[in-house]
Amino acid sequence: MAHPPAFVARRARFQCPVQDFVGPCASQTCWPNRLQEGLAVHMNVYLPIAEMSANVLVFLGMGAAVGFLSGMFGVGGGFLMTPLLIFSGIPPAVAVGTEGAQIVASSVSGAIAQWRRRNIDLMMGTVLLSGGVLGSGIGVILVRELRRAGQFDFVVAVSYVTFLGAIGTLMMVESIGSIRKARAGHAVPQRSAGRHAWMQGLPFKMRFQRSHLYISAIPPFVIGAFVGVLAAIMGVGGGFIMVPAMIYLLHVPTSVVVGTSLFQIVFVTATTTILHATENKNVDVILALILMVGGVIGAQFGAVAGEKLKGEQLRFLLAGLVLLVALRIGWSLIAEPGDLYSIATGKLA
């Protein structure tokens, strides 16, 4: 036959790897290699939107690892997952769009649990949410325009460095202080934030019953909108901004902060996902599904691990993690790139 044997073996491997194992062994591809290649073929899945083949195990593991950390610290994990996806070769826009769907999955069960415990201020949540929907709409359009201008990767990196750097530093300082005080034997006093007089003068005052607040609807709306923009651009839920803003700026009681923020995150990330899918077509449902499966499994173990650590220790570790991510992304901005040129193809190039 005119075809060389290597060619026949090659085709057969793609048609039926198992049959190929029992066949005669070619000298350069012995069975361990073939087994490995056979496994690699089966563990890969072609992502329809990212238009690339990805190893299922790698992304399942990534989802599980981030899920573990988010279960342990009680955070959404978007700020870890999106950079990880980008580092592993997923196009930044697809990473941001897809991560929104995964955050929906990881926040829904928490939000339902909080709903059952009546820890959600629906009025506050609705005001935050209406701001959030507006913000996510703005964010999705910003993503489109930035991609056209070729500055999207840069803006994502700068936002990560800015927000993670700031939040990480604040958390690090606060947790070190708490740990020191706890070692010295003092009780850790709750920080009482000062009242913001200028906020009292704003119009559209509303009564937020669960939060025992009578304040203007403008500050929560603006905070919601700001977090919505970040959610769309950074591929995060925005809890790391929302929770401190609610505690320190709006003085929402801590008992309803987590539930209300989860409520807002579920709906804002769902909106972001739908808007990204419609406007930017960067949501990969297969990738999202893989991450979700890994994430929910990891979160179960993470929650168990989290119960064994003290609050200030957890915050210290989380701050360290946040700062590491910020530094890693910051380094990619200031280090001279290996190639100054880059190319982009497709409709949004």
């Binding site: 929906v104 996902t273 599904l289």
Partner: peptide, 10 residues
């Protein structure tokens, strides 16, 4: 996609 996410979580 959102429905898939909610379904997976539930």
């Amino acid at each position: 996609t959102v429905a898939v996410a909610v379904g997976a979580a539930l």
